[in-house]
Every structure is written in structure tokens, then in C-alpha cells.
Design a protein around this nucleic acid. Structure first.
Lengths: 193, 193
DNA sequence: GGCGTTTCTTAACTTAAGTGAACGTTTTTA
DNA sequence: TAAAAACGTTCACTTAAGTTAAGAAACGCC
């Protein structure tokens, strides 16, 4: 399992055996069953998650409805907003499927950073890269219709469409489940019309 | 002018006079007139921008239409995606109004990081913070209607509505200029009953 | 100051998303 | 395993955004 992690990291910076050791000595692995709520709205938490296996999502509860806004799958990291701004969380984090997670928190990171400055470089690069990627994502969302967004998702993250319930996908696409159903039927019609 | 910069930085980390000196010795300030295109789609560039005064925006050219997706105003930073992934830019960057900018590039950053590791910490924190903030932004966008988005913008960044042309705001809100016009009229009607 | 361009608004019409409800299917769980 | 809950689809109806076009207002540039 940890090999996946080291393979991932080594795409950004080289790691010595010492450093791998240090990571493993501080790392907290956690397994969680499908449906487990890792963080609730209103709660405070210091935990960030790096997904080694499975899928987790963030969602809001708005007027009694779940609004899913993000999915995190293998080799993706989520540091909830509440960890950054030290305020109660605005959203929930839960497991879409059984998952193996690497749990981090600011104290552990601080320790890693002081022992191995290289590790802070890694985090900086990752954050900068994610920020730029996410901006592009947001841009695509703004400049396209629900149907285009769905087709886009279909070829960029086809796995998500398999492993995630439709009604969660719908809010991820910024629409209602009924609209997603209709939209899919429309596309299907086109493809045989 | 640079005082603004140092005030901003000192909200995150303390700076010694030496460090301020170092920043100023490497920093490149640039003024640009309204309408100046700082980066074109298809171009490669290493320049990131920190806005000291004025407003810049990113936009795509899609089927002959400008689609504005982001604005950066005082004390906000933009590192274009092309700087991160070393590929030609997908979008344009231009000045909404006359601007004073701090221009950065990876070489200069690398030099700063090695001289003052603290500076890398600053950049990591800023990137992490921006990432979390932007996620919230995206979430709000997904979970609300164009009208709600406009009202939200109205109270979160009222300045933007003043300094930016409507048609640029429209695509920022994910709609057409005509729809923004109509939507504003609708809100105005409601407010007089 | 006048001319042309850009920007904003309005309107009529089209298209697609939201809403509320019904229904069959699958999944949970007691 | 039976009852309940959750899920996905469909339908009829409402509402709002997209489209096309036209005209008014603001701005920039000789």
C-alpha cells in the first residue's frame, strides 16, 4: 500500500530511505467503510486525508438536501477548509466506498517540515499544482452547459460515473438528479437518432 | 507601494529588514495600462503576477467570444496554469484597469527559497489557503442559481460590480450578458414589489 | 464635436433546467 | 425475508436561461 504513496511522491521529489522511514513513522493509516462520515458540518477537525484506495466526497446539507461538490479518489488529497481556517466545517466529508486513507494534521506536517524541508517543497508544489488545475476545472464548468459538463466528465473521469450514485453526480454537475436523468436520455437519443 | 506588499506578507510570516531587502532586490515591478494583454492563449510564459493596484482578468476565446473566468484585484496573486505545467497557455490575461504588478517567475522564486526558506513556507501557506478558499467558491457556484450567484457577488465583492464591464461579469457568473441584464431587472422589480 | 465602436438593455421566441409527483427497482435493515 | 428506505426514471408543468435581433447609451478616437 505505502508503495503507491512513495511512487506518487517520487514523481515530484526524490526520497531517501531515511525520509521514507520518517514518513512511515509519523503516518497514520485509516480504513473506513462506505458511508462513514469522516467530518460533519459544524465540527472542527485537524485532519486532512490522502486517498490510497477508494473514494471520498464532500457535501453540503442545504434545505435538507445533500449537495455533493467534490470527489477524491486514489492519489488525491483533501485538506478540509476548516483545517485551514480553524473554524467549524461548512460541509461533510464521507466515504463513497470502502477506503484506505492516510490521515495528516498540521502538527505532524510541522514536524515533517522541520525534519525534512524537502517535504515542505513537495507540499508547496502539490498545492500550487492543484490550485492551477482546479482553476482550469472551474473555468470549464463556468464556460459549459450541464450537458457538456457531463460529456466532459465522461471522458475525463469515466471511473466516477461508474462508482458514484447518479444523484451525487448530479449536484457535482450543478444540476438536479431528474435533469441528469433527462440529459442522459437526450444524449442517448442523439446517439442513435 | 511596497509597504502594501510587506503589510500583506507580515499577516502570514514576520519579515526581517534583510528579507525585505532581498525581496526588493529581486522584485520586478511593472505598470500596465487598461487593456494591456499580459499573456495570450497559445503563448508560453514564466511570469506570475501579484496585483498591487488595479485589476486583471483571465479569459478564454471560445468560438469568437471572450469568456472571462477570473478577476484578480489588490493583494491577489495569479500564477497562470502555463507556468505550472510548462505548456502553451489556454487563456489570456489582461488588464481590466491600469495596474501596478509585481512580476515573479520560477527562477526568482527558487533563488528566494534557497536564500530564505521562510519564503517557501509563505508560498506554501498562501497556496494552501487559496486552494481551500477556491474550493468553497466553486462549491457555492455549483450549489446556487445565476441570480443567487449575482446577489452573492454583490455582497462579497461589490467593488467588482463597479469596476468591471457587465459582459465580463456575465461570463464570470456563467451566463450570457443578456441574461445578466434580465436578471438584474428581475431583482430590481422584486425590490420595489 | 462628430463618427464609429463597444456596451447595455429590451423583446420575442426557443430550449433546457427546476418542480412536484408517480412508479418501478434496488438496497438496507429490522 | 419482509417492510422500509433510497434510488433512478419518466411525465406534465413552470420558470429561467440561450438565441437572435434591434435600438439606446456610453466611450474612444480622430
Amino acid at each position: 500500500m505505502q508503495d503507491l504513496l512513495f511512487d506518487f511522491i517520487s514523481k515530484y521529489i526524490p526520497l531517501t530511505d531515511d525520509e521514507k522511514e520518517a514518513i512511515l513513522s509519523l503516518a497514520i493509516f485509516r480504513t473506513a467503510k462506505k458511508g462513514t462520515v469522516l467530518l460533519s458540518a459544524g465540527e472542527k477537525s485537524d485532519d486532512g486525508y490522502f486517498v490510497l484506495k477508494g473514494c471520498i466526497r464532500t457535501y453540503y446539507m442545504i434545505e435538507g438536501e445533500e449537495k455533493t461538490t467534490a470527489f477524491y479518489t486514489e492519489m488525491e488529497a483533501l485538506t478540509p477548509h476548516c483545517v485551514i481556517n480553524k473554524a467549524p466545517s461548512e460541509y461533510y466529508v464521507s466515504c463513497v466506498s470502502d477506503a484506505i486513507l492516510l490521515v495528516s494534521n498540521p502538527d505532524m506536517e510541522a514536524e515533517m517540515f522541520s525534519k525534512f524541508p524537502k517535504f515542505e517543497t513537495l507540499c508547496r508544489i502539490l498545492a500550487e499544482e492543484l490550485l492551477a488545475k482546479q482553476q482550469i476545472n472551474f473555468d470549464e464548468f463556468k464556460t459549459s452547459s450541464p450537458e457538456q459538463r457531463y460529456l466532459n466528465l465522461l471522458h475525463k473521469r469515466p471511473d466516477l460515473i461508474q462508482r458514484v450514485p447518479q444523484h451525487q453526480l448530479a449536484s457535482y454537475l450543478g444540476i438536479k438528479p431528474q435533469s441528469l436523468s433527462r440529459l442522459r436520455a437526450r444524449i442517448f437519443e442523439k446517439n442513435r437518432g
